[in-house]
Design a protein around this nucleic acid. Structure first.
Lengths: 405, 405
DNA sequence: ACTGATTAGTCCTGATTACAAATTAATTAG
DNA sequence: CTAATTAATTTGTAATCAGGACTAATCAGT
């Protein structure tokens, strides 16, 4: 039970102010007041504290004044995030690649690194070696030392328990219930967060992508696994016990005998591993080039995948419609490598989505396809780390940054 | 965005204190402090205000002292809710009956009334007539006048928008998007709330039933429609736009051609309307006695329903497993008239639930069957009203008797 | 019955954080 | 140069908590 005390109040308002500044890029105190509905007094106090902590910086350049003011009165002082207030590392761990980014306090990328290695059902120490190496190299590339990094955030496919940083199950790990975050934290000597890749991407879409204006949306990631991230009221929705969501586990079908897990129908592996997979494709899959190969085949007019992809799309459309029935989000964002299948996947998806969706929601929920680049995954992980840094009052582990002083 | 101010703080803490007193029945200030983690000072201030508003009453009877104290020291003053602080009416509107209760401030039932009438796809004025009549009669039965009632809460099957009190779609209404709450409020001259029946029952289970100790659970109501209530962190979870959830809309199946809505498989109507429905049954259904008849048939050894019920159970098990995958609740509660089908429904349900549930959750989620009486539905509606009452400002200003000196 | 110990509850001070209202600051208009 | 105008800070009040002093009510022991 959350007890309401002044400290919580302050944490909430501080977060709102910081978040408002981040979203706006550059904003005056009055405008913050308009957007947050906080009193001018409070804005002053909070911004003073943020300035004192050097998390934001003032910009006196008059520049363009607000439209409503006829250039009269005391000019507004614009405030921006101090980009160098902190740096974090975000990493996406996928079965066929590792992607790292170093970002500043705003989430802007300072350096990025992609390691095209296969990480498939490996033991923790092996994965950790690769991750540790990637983090160190990427930090060096950014011209920084490891000590300059405040947090490392790892986006992992599968089911992740955010609070403890344990990975319950994932295609990249051989074992279940892997204590990833603590293990990496010990080896790097940096605070480390583990998060599901879908949640990281949801965060990325909220901060940098197609959902910047939207506090309620559902993100479906279609890669080797099928991930799910739900943003609800501007916060990642986590079930009880902070387990991340996984769409692949969803059972499709009316009865036990004729039902299948969605991951067996619509995951990348399920699609590529269909009866039409030729030898070249199997080899391409082994080295993590499956989707590139498929795109080439599609370009050459090979329609062997159409049936499998169509089936996958239909199932996904139904599953997503069911989700929309539960969360009623105005927006659904699809990302992931399976999008390379193009219309053969997406057309059936859209069609079955619209058929399966119940009437009242049909007009208000909209599907968005986003061919996000590799870096966006890692940047989303970084955003997860930054959002905790900002002092989001709802997170369990919310160590404020003030202790640095 | 909610702005955090002292007023909100006070509202939150006041609610927690009131809720703690309600749950405990009778409790001393120190124990409230232990449970809420609020300071003794704050407890004193808040309880003083509550006493001043006559929402709670002190009980000096020494009686049994706390175990930890060896009967030494100043005895604790027990505090209890003042049952007569307010009365509310809760009503369950089902297709085959209307159930009303009048409860006091604790949620204890003062009077109840069941009208076994058929309410099936009727226009709003017709339903409103029945509801208004029931409310008036039940209030009279309780020895009260309409003016003594603070709020009326209506539990309706289907999709209800809680904020506006509009019923988007429901088997009891012919039309869609019915402004039920405002309509009834005008006719009775009392503040009126509309809520989905599943949410009302979820509230009832949380306050009076099988989830008193549990802040995270999922409730599935199996009646004419299939309703869903999600309690998350002690609060009813409502999707974006405050739409209640509905399980019946869920699409089961991998493809558009071979998929069906869950309501077409597992709703009461779907089960009873199967190929085995005889004439007597159809007649029984028409007057809202379907399930009673089925029970008689089952008692007589008629197993014509077994296949249909089994199919429904299997589908429900899968649907519930998918829900558990999303919300990860430790408990799932099943209620509703379809439980009368007994093991022929529940055994397949349990079996397919356990098969469909993903491994990590298999051990932690438990299904509970609750043959709740009719009154519990209406009492849940009353609880919805009371819970809003507990949080509302009520008294003119913040108490703070300090200023009087 | 008196004294001392023990626990419950209230009151007071000082710190924090919020808001509202008044005040100061910086700039343009005339 | 003065007035007007808008921005931002300073001053006064309510709410929280922490900790201590204080009162209230009861029991244990003499």
């Amino acid at each position: 039970m959350k007890t309401a005390d002044p400290e919580l109040m302050r944490a909430i308002n501080r977060f709102h102010v910081l978040d408002t500044i981040r979203r706006a890029g550059s904003i005056s105190r009055v405008e913050i007041g308009e957007r947050t509905q906080l009193s001018a007094t409070t804005i002053s106090a909070i911004t003073a504290a943020l300035l004192d902590d050097e998390l934001i910086t003032p910009h006196h350049e008059g520049g363009l004044r607000s439209d409503s003011n006829g250039n009269r009165g005391r000019p507004r002082v614009m405030l921006t995030l101090n980009a160098s207030a902190a740096r974090v590392v975000g990493a996406k761990i996928a079965t066929n690649r590792l992607v790292f980014v170093v970002t500043d306090f705003q989430g802007d990328i300072l350096a990025h690194l992609t390691l095209p290695v296969r990480v498939d059902r490996l033991p923790l120490p092996v994965v950790a070696d690769l991750v540790e190496d990637g983090v160190r190299r990427c930090v060096l590339d950014a011209g920084l030392a490891l000590a300059d990094i405040h947090t490392v955030a790892l986006a992992v496919p599968g089911v992740v328990e955010h609070g403890s940083g344990r990975v319950r199950s994932s295609p990249v790990f051989r074992d279940v219930d892997v204590p990833l975050a603590t293990y990496i934290a010990e080896r790097l000597g940096i605070a480390t967060i583990a998060e599901s890749d879908a949640n990281a991407m949801a965060m990325a879409q909220h901060w940098f992508g197609r959902a910047r204006d939207c506090d309620d949306f559902v993100l479906v990631s279609m890669e080797e696994g099928l991930g799910l991230g739900v943003m609800h009221g501007g916060q990642l929705f986590r079930g009880a016990r902070e387990l991340s969501l996984d769409l692949g586990h969803m059972m499709m079908g009316v009865s036990t005998v004729q039902s299948e897990r969605l991951s067996d129908i619509a995951s990348e592996r399920a699609i590529l591993d269909g009866e039409h997979a030729d030898l070249r494709l199997r080899e391409a899959m082994r080295v993590g080039r499956g989707m590139n190969h498929v795109q080439r085949l599609l370009a050459e007019g090979d329609d062997g995948f159409t049936a499998t992809a169509s089936r996958a799309g239909e199932a996904l459309g139904i599953a997503i419609a069911n989700l929309v029935g539960l969360f009623a989000p105005p927006r659904v964002i699809l990302v992931g490598s399976s999008l390379a299948l193009g219309r053969s996947l997406l057309d059936p998806l859209q069609a079955s989505f619209e058929r399966a969706l119940s009437a009242p929601l049909r007009e208000v929920s909209q599907i968005i396809i986003d061919e996000a680049g590799d870096e966006l995954w890692a940047r989303g992980a970084a955003a997860v780390a930054l959002s905790e840094l900002y002092g989001s009052p709802w997170s369990t582990t919310g160590p404020a940054l003030r202790s640095t002083l």
